[in-house]
């Protein structure tokens, strides 16, 4: 029998052992957002505050009087997180405190109702990190469509599949010229950890957009959460990159995927939300993936 206690757990050695997400949250089994939050908090450390609009994380933390999170969590109204974080960040600055202010918001609270506050905070240069964990629908209320729901996906308010494409949040954020922005995916937690670390080392408004597969919402078995995230990256549907002071870097897993993406069907086949997607829609989805890959490839190559 292998004595696992004496063997090094090499790929975890760089990550702090502290867990700021206590056992246990009320997240659904297989929740990738919980997984992301573990690494966000490990990277941020204890001198951090999470500002959370109405979203799954409002529920995940637990019901009063106990919470599963051991950093201060400020719950605020749906549209208000970026603005609330602006005020908090300025208050800390006024007091000479260096506490990290991190918005951890779902896609609905980011691309839809919260986008005005997000835009305002980025334009003002608020010193904070905004993380959008994107499960591509209003998960907390039972999977209604959001602006981040992709073309063809069935939700409770798009029962025939969403007829329009996913809002390109990253290009909206990019238009604000933040000093740091990145994409990440729950299937690559160490990559997320590094990106949060880097973001928090930079002054000003930072943004990380995390794809967060959702078993009940996307209708796949709970154990497939990490696999689903990897497939999103491997098919080029989700591209991992960083943009530091405007300079784009495609991250490792996506480099290979962009050269030779896995068939899109590998990603959507396992998801109930894409069941019965028409060949026309599938074709459009394929075109979008290709266009996105080409656009980012051109940008990285300096051809715009």
């Amino acid at each position: 029998m292998t004595n696992i206690t004496v063997r090094s757990v090499t790929n975890l050695s760089a990550i702090p052992k502290e867990e700021y997400l206590y056992k246990c949250t009320s997240a659904c089994a297989g929740c990738s957002s919980s997984l992301c939050l573990r690494y966000v908090l490990k990277a941020a450390g204890p001198d951090s505050v999470l500002v959370i609009p109405a979203c799954c994380t409002s529920v995940i933390q637990g019901t009063y009087p106990g919470t599963a999170m051991s950093v201060p969590v400020y719950n605020v109204a749906f549209a208000a997180s970026a603005a609330c974080a602006s005020g908090m960040s300025e208050a800390f600055a006024a007091m000479g405190r260096e506490t990290n202010v991190i918005v951890y918001a779902g896609d609905g609270g980011t691309v839809d109702i919260g986008i005005q506050a997000l835009s305002g905070a980025f334009e003002r240069g608020t010193n904070f990190l905004y993380i959008c964990y994107d499960n591509e629908a209003y998960g907390n209320t039972g999977m209604q469509r959001s602006g981040a729901t992709p073309l063809g996906a069935r939700t409770t308010t798009t029962p025939g599949g969403k007829p329009t494409t996913k809002k390109d949040l990253d290009r909206i954020v990019e238009a604000h010229n933040p000093p740091y922005m990145a994409t990440a995916c729950s299937a690559y937690p160490l990559d997320l950890y590094k990106k949060v670390k880097k973001a928090l080392s930079i002054e000003g408004p930072k943004f990380i957009h995390v794809l967060a597969p959702c078993p009940p919402g996307w209708r796949y078995p709970t154990e497939k959460t990490v696999e689903m995230g990897k497939l999103a990256v491997k098919t080029g549907t989700w591209i991992l990159y960083e943009r530091e002071y405007g300079k784009l870097t495609i991250n490792g897993p996506s480099k290979a995927a962009m050269r030779k993406p896995a068939p899109l069907e590998d990603y959507i086949r396992g998801q109930g939300r894409f069941k019965n997607v028409s060949p026309e829609i599938l074709n459009l989805m394929r075109q979008q993936v290709q266009q996105n890959i080409e656009r980012l490839s051109r940008e990285e190559a300096g051809v715009c």
Binding site: S70, V73, N75
Partner: peptide, 8 residues
């Protein structure tokens, strides 16, 4: 650390 205004 406290959770402010959670589900109640």
């Amino acid at each position: 650390p406290l959770g402010y205004g959670p589900v109640t």
